[in-house]
Structure formats: structure tokens, C-alpha cells
């Protein structure tokens, strides 16, 4: 439990930044100008609330794998705690991304689930991290759980990464901007959407990290109460 980690998770400026960015995202996301595109229409605004979920999820998965590596080299349970909680938060964002995506797809593609690389990648990712939690729950010893969980986490992350890289080679995506579909940037000449999209990515990612650090602190308090 290094003091450095505590000071970052307890400093407030980036939490304020997250709130400001998200308030801006919600206001501009719903009210700001968007290009008029056929089929997608106003649902293009989902860019701010769906694509950003994936960005936050991938960031948290990177945190998970980095802290798993850190745990294996240091043996400090704090590192494993951060790893576990970031995986949990990544699952929350994966579910949120899946739900926002499925609602959007139902209107745009006419079906909530289609054979699309992104969807298959998400399904695989969620199964992998569900397995990660099942494995962790199967082990009662704290140190053993941390070590084995970290090993599986690293292996799973690499396999997930390979899967996400491989799968677009298999079939074309239906997503905007992929597989020959018109993307956002092509029509978005005045970059209006980018002015909302980038802050939204930063906002949601910071929000995810914030929630994760809160969970870590909660777990530490629980541990203290339990041991007292």
C-alpha cells in the first residue's frame, strides 16, 4: 500500500474534470449539432454514449493487466485488489456498452444481435472476464487467489487482444466507418462531433477509474472492519 497510489486516488482535481466533462457530454451530446445522415439519423449521438464505453473498458483492462503484472513481481495484495476491481469495472462498462449498442442496433440494423466482429469480440471478452471471476471465487486462500488470478488475467488479456486483432480479418463489420460503411468523420466536416467525442472519452474513462478507486477503498475499509 504505497502512499503514492493513495495520494492520486484521493486527489480531487481529476474527479472534478470527470464531472465537468460528463456534464458537457450530456448537454452537448443531446443538444449539440450533428450531421444529418440517412438511416443513422439522430441515433448518431450514440457515439458519445456507446463508443466511449469501449474506450473506458479497454483502459480498465489495461489497468487490470498492468496491476496483475505488478502483483506477480511485487507480491503486494494491494496490486491484486486494484487489478480485480478494474476488471469488475471493465465488466460494468462492457455491459453498458453492450446495452447501448444493442438498443442502437435494433433501430439501425433492425436486430439487436448480428454477426459482427465487434459484437463477437465483446461476447468473448465478457466470457473471459466472467471466467476470471469464477476462477477467483473458486479459491479461498487470499494469496493463492491473487497469484492464480493474476496469471489467468495476463494470459486472458493477451488472448482477448489476439481475438480482437484477428476477428476483423474474418468478416467485414457493419459498424459505421468500417467495412466500407460511411463513417462519422467523413461527413463531419466541421468536427462538431469530435468536440464532444474526445471530452466524452476522457470523461467516461476518468469516471471509470474513479469508481474503481472507490471500490478499492471500500474493499480496504471492509477488510479493516473484518480484521478488527
Amino acid at each position: 500500500m504505497t502512499t503514492k497510489n493513495n495520494s492520486i486516488s484521493r486527489s480531487w482535481w481529476w474527479k472534478i474534470l470527470a464531472i465537468v466533462m460528463l456534464v458537457y457530454t450530456f448537454i452537448m451530446g443531446f443538444l449539440g449539432p450533428v450531421p444529418a445522415m440517412p438511416i443513422i439519423n439522430e441515433s448518431i449521438r450514440n457515439l458519445y454514449f456507446h463508443v466511449t464505453m469501449w474506450m473506458a473498458m479497454i483502459t480498465l483492462m489495461f489497468v487490470n493487466v498492468i496491476y496483475s503484472l505488478k502483483y506477480l513481481s511485487s507480491g503486494k495484495l494491494y496490486h491484486d485488489l486494484v487489478g480485480e476491481e478494474s476488471a469488475r469495472m471493465a465488466m460494468v462498462f462492457a455491459s453498458a456498452g453492450l446495452i447501448t449498442g444493442m438498443i442502437w442496433a435494433n433501430f439501425t440494423w433492425g436486430a439487436p444481435w448480428v454477426n459482427d466482429p465487434q459484437l463477437n469480440g465483446t461476447a468473448a471478452t465478457m466470457l473471459i472476464y466472467a471466467a476470471y471471476f469464477i476462477l477467483r471465487n473458486a479459491i479461498t486462500d487470499e494469496i493463492k487467489r491473487a497469484r492464480i488470478g493474476s496469471v489467468y488475467g495476463i494470459f486472458a488479456f493477451v488472448m482477448m487482444f489476439v481475438f480482437i486483432m484477428i476477428i476483423p480479418k474474418m468478416n467485414d463489420s457493419l459498424h459505421p466507418g468500417k467495412g466500407g460503411n460511411p463513417g462519422f468523420n467523413k461527413y463531419d466536416l466541421d468536427s462538431n462531433m469530435r468536440m464532444v467525442f474526445y471530452p466524452a472519452v476522457i470523461g467516461w474513462t476518468l469516471f471509470g477509474v474513479w469508481m474503481m478507486s472507490l471500490r478499492v477503498r471500500l474493499r480496504k475499509i471492509e477488510e479493516k472492519i473484518h480484521n478488527a
Partner: peptide, 19 residues
């Protein structure tokens, strides 16, 4: 190293075998 539950091999292994 977990609890030698053979069903766990399938649960952990299948998602990793997708690629």
C-alpha cells in the same frame, strides 16, 4: 492450483480458445 474442479478447465479454457 485452484480446486481441481475439472469443469473449471472448460469454463476457463473455452473463451481463450476462440481466436
Amino acid at each position: 492450483k485452484a480446486n481441481n474442479n475439472a469443469a473449471l478447465v472448460a469454463i476457463l479454457g473455452f473463451p481463450l480458445l476462440f481466436p
